[in-house]
Design a protein around this nucleic acid. Structure first.
Lengths: 108, 108
DNA sequence: ATCCATAATCGCAATATTACGATATATTTT
DNA sequence: AAAATATATCGTAATATTGCGATTATGGAT
């Protein structure tokens, strides 16, 4: 054991969980906030801005890319990272829908 | 290493990450969806509804309680779990704000 | 060709998460 | 008092995540 049993959940539930993972680490929140703020998609600055090593930042960017919420354009020797608007909108929609599904019932 | 360096991030970033963790596992998404749907806060049904053991469900509920998004009322021998509207609203606000902070810049 | 800058990847160690069987706890029912 | 019910917790194993130093890879500059 130790691995999440993804097979037993719906596609939607697994996708929401994955999208949430993008925000489930403060470093990734910081990265996304920075990319959202700076109009131009600054790249290696992230390493300067964040109090983490280059290797660690790169790893978080890889995870964000896997989820799809961030995309990178290579412009050697730099890579220009920015938010993928399509997936960002998907997250907005998914969390919006999920969080309005509950409108307050005071049972406890 | 292996532990998140929470000290180097802002309170807000750490809180968002924590709130996101509530949704960062399909089982917890399923739990929250179930609690949001059923008007009465059904409790041990969760174990019947979810394809996970009682111990695992209990552990996820503990994590959701730690985050604060779920609260439980003991009514022995049962425990009645339900969504904590205050924290739910906090999540709604936090994600809403964060996800509208980006309005589309097409740099890549 | 050599050096420099940027970023990915490797390898590793520390820690966290996920999952579950077994056991403990607490209350209700019999 | 014993049995049944519901839930938490313990212990443990498997796997994932986090973090970083070192290395590699790529292309531009000297």
């Amino acid at each position: 054991m130790g691995a999440t049993k993804t097979e037993v959940f719906t596609e939607q539930q697994n996708r929401i969980a994955d999208l949430a993972k993008a925000f489930a680490h403060p470093a990734r929140v910081a990265i996304l906030q920075h990319l959202a703020k700076t109009q131009s998609c600054i790249c290696g600055d992230l390493v300067d801005v964040l109090p983490l090593s280059q290797a660690t930042v790169s790893q978080h960017l890889k995870e964000l890319s896997r989820i799809g919420i961030v995309k990178g354009n290579v412009d050697p020797p730099r890579v220009c990272y920015c938010i993928n608007e399509v997936v960002w909108a998907e997250a907005k929609e998914a969390f919006g829908k999920l969080l309005t599904q509950f409108e307050g019932n005071f049972c406890c």
